Amino acid sequence: MKTNRYLLVYMGEGAMPSADVAYFRASSHVLDQSRRCLLVDDQAEHLRELLRIKHQWQFQPEQLRKPLAS
Rank of each mutant, 00 (worst) to 15 (best):
M1L: 04
T3V: 14
T3L: 05
T3F: 01
N4M: 05
R5T: 12
R5S: 07
R5Q: 11
Y6E: 04
Y6R: 04
Y6A: 01
Y6T: 02
Y6M: 06
L8E: 03
L8Y: 00
L8I: 13
L8H: 01
V9Q: 06
V9W: 08
V9G: 01
Y10I: 04
Y10D: 03
M11W: 00
G12V: 04
G12E: 06
G12W: 01
E13K: 07
G14Q: 11
G14E: 11
G14Y: 04
G14H: 05
G14F: 01
A15W: 03
A15F: 04
A15S: 15
M16K: 04
M16T: 03
M16A: 12
M16I: 11
M16L: 10
P17A: 12
P17V: 15
S18Q: 15
S18F: 12
A19E: 14
A19H: 11
D20P: 00
D20F: 04
D20M: 10
V21I: 15
V21Q: 06
V21R: 13
V21L: 13
V21W: 08
V21H: 08
V21M: 14
A22N: 07
A22P: 00
Y23Q: 09
F24D: 02
F24H: 05
R25W: 09
R25P: 01
R25E: 15
A26G: 06
H29C: 11
H29Y: 04
L31Y: 03
D32L: 05
Q33W: 02
Q33Y: 07
Q33G: 10
Q33V: 07
Q33N: 09
R35E: 15
R35M: 13
C37L: 11
L39N: 06
V40G: 05
V40H: 02
D41I: 04
D42V: 02
Q43A: 14
Q43S: 12
Q43H: 08
A44M: 07
A44T: 06
A44K: 11
H46A: 14
R48A: 11
E49H: 07
E49W: 02
E49I: 07
E49A: 13
E49R: 12
E49P: 00
L50R: 10
L50F: 10
L50G: 05
L51N: 03
L51H: 02
L51Y: 02
L51P: 01
R52V: 09
R52C: 09
I53T: 13
K54L: 09
H55M: 10
Q56S: 15
W57S: 03
Q58I: 08
Q58E: 10
Q58G: 00
Q58M: 10
F59P: 03
Q60F: 01
P61C: 09
E62F: 06
E62C: 03
Q63H: 03
Q63A: 12
Q63E: 13
Q63V: 09
L64G: 05
L64N: 08
R65Y: 03
P67A: 11
P67E: 13
L68M: 15
L68F: 06
A69G: 12
A69L: 15
S70F: 07
S70R: 10
